[in-house]
Design a protein around this nucleic acid. Structure first.
Lengths: 353, 353
DNA sequence: TTGTAAGCGTTATCAT
DNA sequence: ATGATAACGCTTACAA
């Protein structure tokens, strides 16, 4: 005769650990059924004002807090959205996270976060963990990921969106700037100024389709004009101001010098600018410098830096809206392209002579 | 004769929406009881290798993912920690979040985030929401908060820690730098250099006990030497580089000028420095400038800025460790002070003449 | 409008 | 070592 967990509610056994109040206690105290309490919470209009009042009182008095786990189990919804970002500390993602949280909060969703450290394998692990936790939807970064993960998400029927990219192929909504086009345009502007010798300093594009798309945009624009980049004029490294200085130094050490240097992110651009100033290179007369994306310091420097500003908190906000629509069951959710904006500042001019 | 939800598992009704595989299906396919499958997951050593193998196979084949909600309901644990930070986008908090996530992830906990936008009321709401979601513990910022919230957390028995502060009073663990002492020391250093006329630019300290503690430290150090700050030399505003410039301009417009300007955060300090350079004020000969906390640009500027570096990702890491210990039921968890470090750079020197 | 009770998918107790 | 089953705390179909 198997018995399972002992029942004994208010039986002889003097319970030492007073069970926390639950829906049942509230119902009992308000002299209604548990169903009514539940309705009073989730569909107040279906409960008579009188009962509603009584129930509210009891809830207040007892300080009852409904159990999310129980609710999730019963409804199969957690009202929770998960994100796997490469990093949480980088300005770009931190801003997006902030926007995401803002928008989710407004619809009383909660945000679960994880980071992948730019590793696909880690992204996969984290995403799976989030699905186990029961997230209703997922916000990921980039369009590229292991097919294994994609299959998993499809099988589990977890909706997700890709952010910071815009490569609509109709399968999964993308929310972000079209980095390719943004850099294509920025490059065209520079070509228009007369530049022909380009120097490129970028963070490593390995496992980073956003960075990849940016460089593709640059090269495409150059190729369209028959311009080639000298091998020693295309450098990759880490991302930081210090790294920007280092790469810039390396770039201008040889001959011929580029007439314009493009930084793949704001830090590299700031580093390049600082190093140029330190080396006594006159910007923009001797050399132009541009960046990608915008941080406050770029426009506050002695010579403000021309750049293409991407939307980052707006990516978060829009991603929230889109994923919520998918969760709500909408089937025709489209990708949304968020515009980048070219900010022409003092760091760019026609090449010397 | 009430019936509740219809049961009919594999009854006549051809279920169109195939129920997702669950523990039961796995158990059936492996020809074991659900209890055994559960054990194979949570205490493998208590299950015979043979069954373990069989179960693993079935799990792999079916792609079963355990339901976090059900598990949470049964165990009353979610393996989830929540945070309510004033902002997610600010470098300080973004770093802490990153460290927190890192450390939690290593112990397979997941992080739920919310932000309060520096509002106590919002902090309260968010914290309650997180508790409803079932977080096992909470990481908050600062020592000060509505007693209502404190009571709530105590009543619900949710452990929490306070970060970015160190004011151990034995009740709740604090993890952070002693900002008061940090700025006390920085100020003493400046006094030691000979400075007597201090200019202070800070972000608003309203509802921000960390910023408050910093200024208290400055004023205490000054008071200890009988130094007073002129009213027009203590300015408050927003936090940003632009704001730093604005406040600095305002500060030096009058007479007498301070011989040293202290910025309450890295952005204000950078702004002050940029404005000083733009105005042709020679730093540090004519005027010294210091900041609080450290961001990369501070040491990369033409004149690197002296500052007191606080630990920010370490705050996250340590907070994770401490809250996990509390969740584990440890009762004697102490506060931990994380050291600040004075970084003397080129922006400070004795006052002119 | 309100009540009854089954069911959500696990874990854990007890018996074997 | 394994199995049977109650319990976790809600929601909801159906009946009244």
């Amino acid at each position: 005769m198997p018995r399972g967990r002992r029942k004994d509610p208010e039986g002889e056994g003097a319970q030492r650990t007073a069970r926390p109040v639950g829906l049942r206690e509230v119902a009992a105290l308000a002299s209604v059924s548990t169903a009514t309490v539940s309705r009073a919470m989730n569909a107040p209009e279906t409960v008579s004002p009188e009962l509603r009042r009584r129930i509210q009182m009891v809830i207040r008095e007892t300080g009852w807090v409904p159990s999310g786990a129980a609710r999730a189990l019963a409804t199969r919804r957690t009202f929770t959205v998960g994100t796997v970002f490469p990093s949480l500390a980088q300005g770009l993602f931190a801003n997006a996270l902030d926007g995401l949280q803002d928008e989710l909060n407004a619809r009383s969703y909660t945000l679960l976060v994880a980071h992948s450290r730019y590793s696909f394998e880690e992204e996969r692990r984290q995403a799976i963990k989030l699905v186990e936790r029961g997230v209703d939807g997922l916000v990921l970064v980039g369009r590229q990921r292991p097919p294994e993960l994609v299959r998993f998400l499809e099988k589990q029927n977890v909706p997700y969106v890709c952010t910071f990219v815009f490569e609509p192929d109709g399968r999964v909504p993308c929310i972000g700037p079209d980095s390719y086009r943004a850099l294509y345009e920025l490059t065209e502007y520079l070509i228009g100024l007369g530049h022909r010798r380009f120097g490129l300093i970028a963070q490593s594009i390995e496992g980073n389709d956003r960075a990849q798309a940016r460089w593709n945009g640059v090269h495409a624009a150059l190729a369209a004009r028959g311009i080639a980049v000298l091998p020693q004029h295309a450098l990759q490294g880490h991302w930081s101001i210090t790294e920007g200085r280092r790469l810039f130094r390396q770039l201008v050490a040889g001959y011929p010098r580029p007439t314009v240097v493009m930084g793949g992110n704001p830090f590299l651009a700031v580093g390049a600018m600082l190093e140029a100033l330190a080396m006594g290179i006159r910007v923009p007369d001797e050399m132009s410098i541009v960046g990608y994306d915008d941080i406050e310091i770029m426009q506050e420097m002695a010579i403000p830096i021309t750049t293409m500003r991407g939307p980052s908190d707006e990516v978060g906000r829009e991603a929230a809206r889109v994923i919520l629509r998918m969760i709500a069951g909408e089937t025709d959710v489209a990708s949304v392209e968020l515009p980048s904006k070219m900010l022409i500042r003092a760091s760019t001019a026609p090449p010397p002579r």
